[in-house]
């Protein structure tokens, strides 16, 4: 028995194109170290130098997010299924686009400031009369 690990398309260069690989370990951290011994570089894409899961990576054990199960210390058992995915939850198009144009907000903020200033100036002019 082993732990089945599903690899996202973007990381299959590390697994020789394999969609699913097998590994072993008592915790997620152990499993990733084990995988890295056969698929060098994989762990480095998932874990930061500080030793935490990369912010934009989601890892699931039997469909549950490991961040709520102890993250890299999450306990694993033989027969578990681990899924690795980039962080792109719901409405993927919308938020990708929204994130990409979030600088728009800076421009919008400048405009509303300008408006507020215009209104204030007009009010001041009215008050002065």
């Amino acid at each position: 028995m082993a732990i089945e690990v599903r690899i996202p398309t973007i990381l299959r260069s590390y697994t020789g194109g394999a969609k699913v690989v097998e590994g072993a370990g008592d915790t997620l951290g152990d499993l990733l170290t084990d995988l890295d011994s056969r698929h060098a570089g994989l762990k480095g894409r998932l874990v930061t130098e500080a030793g935490a899961l990369h912010r934009f990576v989601n890892v699931y054990v039997n469909d549950e997010d490991v961040r709520f199960l102890g993250a890299l210390d999450a306990k694993l058992n033989d027969g578990d299924s681990v899924t690795i995915l980039p962080a792109v939850a719901g409405g993927a198009f919308g938020f990708a686009a929204a994130a990409a144009i979030s600088q728009h907000r800076a421009a919008a903020a400048a405009i509303s400031q300008h408006r507020a200033a215009t209104v204030a100036a007009r009010d001041a002019a009215v008050a002065a009369r």
Partner: peptide, 18 residues
């Protein structure tokens, strides 16, 4: 939701979004 692979295939892990 965990979508089909085609959706994630476009994504780079370093360009994720929360």
């Amino acid at each position: 939701p965990r979508y089909g692979e085609l959706v994630y295939g476009l994504r780079n892990i370093d360009e994720g979004y929360v």
